[in-house]
Design a binder for these strands. Structure first.
Length: 262
DNA sequence: AACGTGCGCAACCGCTAGTCG
DNA sequence: TCGACTAGCGGTTGCGCACGT
């Protein structure tokens, strides 16, 4: 993996890092409790690398607080949802996924998630279904719901007068609002918009949705985390099991219909 | 076994924003 | 205000490996 060692015009080494170089870099930073100035670090640490290369190696590989290995289903979902909201702002997305680096998330998106969404009939750029007849469409109802909420939030931002008319977004929305605000400094959040972002579990929007939620919770009382995945004012909700997600909707006669499992 | 091909990911490159004198 | 310098970000590259033929 990596590249063959090369040197640039200044005689700085390029290419894959050796275990000895890793050791030198880690030891220097840990002993000093700081990397200090990246541009002066290489000479101080006895490395023939440019500061930029040292910084990247530390941040993406050597830092003790990074998690490596497969992404969990929850992490995958977070990436998809945050990408729908933020686009290719990998560092912002990474800031919401503890112990993951932007480079790792970017690679995972480009090599796994993009293909996965495409296969499921979802455009990975717009996060919209390519065609509603896709046999995978029903599997992704939560993704589509999410995108719908995002568009509603954007509409509310551009036209505050519509804020109270828009239906409430999916769960975990306050977390998302927080991310959105961090990613869009300077944009003011009106009270109406904030209320619109509140999860209905905290502040039920209307009696119909509340009644339905109660009914769903009562019916599915053996399900775990059901509240987290119930989409208010819609017919859809997600049941999270130990290692799979089931997509359900409530039929007009009150029966539950399982669409599919993820 | 040999070869070709595609994939995964570490590392690089170029650009931008922030800071400081 | 301007230029130099630095840090950080996102896009791209290229090598090693796995897998298919």
């Amino acid at each position: 993996m990596g590249r063959l060692p090369k040197h640039d015009k200044m005689g700085m080494k390029k290419g894959p890092w050796t275990p000895e170089e890793d050791l030198k870099l880690s030891t220097f930073i840990l002993q000093n409790n700081t990397h200090g100035s990246w541009s002066t670090l290489p000479s101080k640490a006895g490395l023939q690398r440019c500061g930029k290369s040292c910084r990247l190696r530390w941040i993406n590989y050597l830092r003790p607080d990074i998690k490596r290995g497969d992404f969990s289903l929850q992490e995958e979902q977070s990436i998809i949802q945050l990408h729908a909201l933020l686009g290719n702002r990998w560092s912002t997305i990474a800031s919401q996924l503890p112990k993951r680096t932007d480079n790792e998330i970017k690679n995972y998106w480009n090599t796994h998630l993009k293909k996965k969404l495409t296969k499921m009939g979802i455009d990975p750029v717009t996060h919209m279904p390519n065609h509603q007849q896709s046999k995978y469409f029903t599997n992704l109802c939560h993704v589509v719901q999410w995108e719908s909420a995002r568009l509603q939030a954007e509409a509310r931002l551009s036209n505050p007068n519509c804020a109270t008319k828009a239906p409430p977004p999916p769960p975990r929305c306050l977390d998302v609002l927080k991310v959105w605000v961090e990613a869009n400094p300077g944009v003011e959040i009106s009270n109406a918009m904030f209320n619109g972002f509140l999860a209905s579990n905290d502040q039920p929007q209307n009696s119909t949705g509340n009644h339905r939620d109660d009914w769903v919770k009562g019916t599915m009382k053996n399900s775990h985390k059901i509240e987290e995945h119930t989409y208010p004012d819609t017919n859809y909700f997600i049941e999270e099991g130990d290692d799979l997600f089931s997509c359900w909707n409530v039929l007009e006669d009150g029966h539950l219909n399982c669409w599919d499992c993820l």
